[in-house]
């Protein structure tokens, strides 16, 4: 995935079954953000892989005051890339099992 300066990682082991998974997001490179990051640390949250949209979570983070509106794209893309990777890994695991 493209280096957005915002890192999103799994906050728990993915058992490949649960649709809801814990993720952790933090800013690795504040210079890549358009606005100054308030150094809040790592933000942990749960994400529903089947029913949620990464951009909605990014919007909620902005409304909660973690990021400025101008950085919604970078935050949304960072979550989206990680979610795509998790889904890809799950699909690959299923294919290998078959």
């Amino acid at each position: 995935a493209e280096n957005t300066g915002v890192r999103v990682e799994l906050a728990e082991e993915d058992d490949g079954k649960k649709s809801s998974i814990a993720l952790k997001l933090w800013v690795e490179d504040p210079k890549k953000l358009k606005t100054k990051y308030k150094d809040n640390g790592a933000i942990e949250f749960t994400f529903d892989l089947e029913n949620e949209v990464p951009e909605d979570v990014a919007q909620e983070m902005i409304e909660s005051g973690f990021f400025h509106e101008s950085d919604i794209k970078i935050v949304g893309k960072s979550i989206k890339d990680r979610v795509a990777l998790i889904k890809w890994k799950r699909e690959r695991t299923v294919l290998l099992q078959v």
Binding site: R7, W26, E28, G41, A42, I43, E44, V57, E60
Partner: peptide, 27 residues
């Protein structure tokens, strides 16, 4: 613990904790 919790109006829970040192170095 220094973890803080923020609950968004939509009901989502954000838990804020310090970024692990090892992860910052792992770039």
């Amino acid at each position: 613990s220094s973890a803080a919790q923020v609950v968004h109006s939509a009901g989502r829970r954000f838990i804020v904790s310090p970024v692990p040192e090892a992860r910052l170095k792992d770039q």
